[in-house]
Amino acid sequence: MIKSIIESFSNLFAKSETINYPYEQIAKFKNYRGLIEYSADECIFCYKCEKVCPPDAIVFKPTKEKNRLYEYNPNLCIYCGECVRNCPKEDLALWQSEKKPKII
């Protein structure tokens, strides 16, 4: 009990461990897993990412043209990165950024 009392007392003069969040930003680590980004120019439309995505966050919508339209839902995404690993043109057509999804 004495130990805890001494620590509580010394904590009065220590810096607080919590962050005033919306005003102060939290330091992110390198290689933070953020949004999946896509480039239509490089895509070869193998649909592998659509196939492996566990929560169906990536969907290729059928269109009238030859190629289907890439659609990504960041709210469904679990940021596992399985699509990026399976992409034949990793880092060119599909890559994982460090951005956070927008808060609506």
């Binding site: 680590f29 390198k30 290689n31 933070y32 897993r33 679990i78 940021y79 596992c80 990165g81």
Partner: peptide, 12 residues
């Protein structure tokens, strides 16, 4: 854990 895996709770 966050630095190693890139995620905080669900490490995958």
């Amino acid at each position: 854990q966050e630095a190693i895996s890139g995620n905080r709770v669900q490490f995958d």
